[in-house]
Design a protein around this nucleic acid. Structure first.
Lengths: 353, 353
DNA sequence: TTGTAGGCGTTATCAC
DNA sequence: GTGATAACGCCTACAA
């Protein structure tokens, strides 16, 4: 708040301009009916004194802060860093500021985010949980505007923006099938889970295989709890060590796929010559890896914009109780070297759903 | 602020506990001299009503927000995302919250950050400018606590945490020399600039060559204004096209080096067989690129922690006018495949300054 | 078109 | 130990 001693207040501006404090307030808030002369006097005083409104006082009075929360697992995960970037820009375009909170994918911290003190500081929350699930739906019944991101909770008590998981996965696998691949491994599955991105993308994977008449082989499913590069590499090594025949890999996110690329490179396996690889997220890194990584581009910008719009709609009129919306973002298959080979120009294929 | 109607206030808690509002406040703020029985009554009332303090009101009264600003170019640049992560954690450990602002490396926005409305919302600012320079030193004379990061402004009117640019660069180049490299290109130079990371790191580069008795060859200096992967790749291509003999590349940051790796891969140049590459920043990606990237680890955690500590010291007693401090972070050379070859175990070499 | 009064929810001051 | 009461700086009624 930078309450340096003697920060100028409206009173001083009013005194200097020879008007009342209310008039100053009116000028500041663009009130229509002010005599031009008065307005000028006030503006001159504001300029002279270098006055700036005290936002905290305004917030207290207005019951609004102009701040929205964005809770993500970690900024050091590139997808979330890029998402945060997009959300900040979208929010800025709408005149609000974003307060980022990291949950570290820790259940307790995800719950804390919902009820913590910071909720008093923000007008609403965009929340991307990675641990909460349908069982926590009660914890999500909060009194403030919230938009959920991700695929952990469906039909929850909030607006919800989600990726096109099943369709995107199906398209990704179809892209591999189109290159003649038949032994397609998947990395990042969560055994026993029936919710979340992992389950949905694996479902899309299976649907694509089914449609192609290829039997599902559990030996091709690589579990990986955390979707980091390290786990992607480990899982890739494990699959290769298992001796199962593989001619393609579907990483359920880019970090996993990049980890897999790393492992394949370490073992001198030609990509895509022997094994093709596709990821998910279209983080910037995928355009520069060696080889460049084909991926599913999940509509990050659209997700950010939609989330901000939905949230602000609720903030702007909290009385209306509109039914909760669910928005599914558009996706694109981005074909790069890791599936198309060296000569591959980058091609983005929008896929109709 | 989630001013949902009927949020519980201290008055209600006081009424319920049968005490005065001040007593509730005392309990909340850990005031020592309270009769245990009174304290219990109040705590029970708080629990019953699910009361939470209104931070905005507290902030207004206290003249503090518990928020500090962190202004960086972009979160989509991995180094800054990882830095933000570290700063958020360091701040959390000290009980304060971080408000991130993106300047997009735009001069006007960097100036705006210094004077904008958000400064009323934060108790201080950690600022990493990329465009401002010594000429802007007046704009940096702000009334609130600030810590500068980076190498744009030295001797400015603020505490300053910086990387060990010259020494780190010298060590990086020495690392290449140790591998027998003699034709070392540098990518990311800023022609004509005498301040900033580029100039300092190029200076270290030249010092290392001098010490090794290798003449400086301007043909080996690749200009690149923006330090992104794309510009790194372009510059690498340009250098290769120029026909100059090169057996190693020093990317002034990891993004440039990764872009260079990308270009080298595209042209089927063996790394490090024919050209060794080293970067700067030690972003997570460098441990997973193909080949893995050797780099200078600039002490990100230490930088974040130090910056937060310095800032909070100023915030905690604003009256004291301590001279401005300058802290130079420790660095480490991390040797990976891009300089040491395939068998390379990852080795981190702390370098004494 | 402008001014006055009052309160947003808390904390600080100072009696009691 | 605890309780009135007055700010913190602004905005909304309402009055003028």
């Amino acid at each position: 708040m930078s309450r340096r001693t003697g920060a100028v207040t409206m009173h001083e501006v009013a005194a200097r301009a020879g008007v009342s404090i209310k008039t100053v307030s009116n000028v500041l808030n663009g009130y229509q009916y002010i005599r031009p002369a008065t307005k000028e006097k006030v503006e001159a005083a504001i300029a002279d004194l270098g006055y700036q409104v005290n936002i905290t006082a305004r917030n207290l009075r207005r019951g609004r802060s102009g701040l929205i929360g964005l809770a993500v697992p970690e900024l050091s995960l590139p997808y979330f860093a890029e998402l945060a970037d997009s959300v900040i820009r979208a929010a800025e375009a709408r005149g609000v500021t974003v307060l980022i909170e990291q949950t570290g994918s820790v259940r307790e911290r995800e719950l804390e985010v919902l009820t913590g003190q910071r909720r008093h500081l923000t007008d609403g929350l965009i929340f991307s949980p990675l641990e909460l699930g349908p069982a926590d739906v009660d914890a999500l019944k909060v009194e403030y505007p919230m938009v959920l991101l991700g695929e952990r909770i469906f039909g929850g008590p909030a607006d919800h923006v989600t990726m096109s998981n099943v369709d995107g996965a199906r398209a990704a696998v179809q892209h591999l099938l189109d290159q003649g691949r038949r032994r397609i491994a998947v990395i990042g599955a969560h055994e026993g889970e029936t919710i979340g991105s992992a389950a949905l993308r694996v479902q899309g994977y299976r649907e694509a295989l089914d449609a192609a008449g290829i039997p599902f082989d559990p030996a091709l499913v690589g579990e990986a709890g955390l979707w980091h590069r390290a786990t992607g590499a480990e899982t890739m090594h494990r699959l290769l060590d298992s001796g199962v025949e593989i001619d393609a890999v579907f990483g359920l996110n880019d970090a996993l796929a990049l980890g897999a690329l790393h492992a394949l490179h370490a073992r001198r396996v030609d990509v895509p010559g022997r094994i093709a690889v596709i990821g998910w997220d279209d983080i910037e890194e995928t355009a520069y890896s060696s080889p460049t990584l084909s991926t599913v581009s999940p509509g990050r910008e659209q997700i950010a914009r939609t989330a901000v719009d939905l949230l602000l709609a609720r903030i702007d009129d909290p009385e209306v109780d509109r039914p909760f919306e669910r928005v599914v973002a558009d996706f694109t298959i981005v074909g790069r070297e890791s599936t198309l080979g060296d000569a591959a120009p980058e091609v983005a294929v929008p896929v109709a759903r």
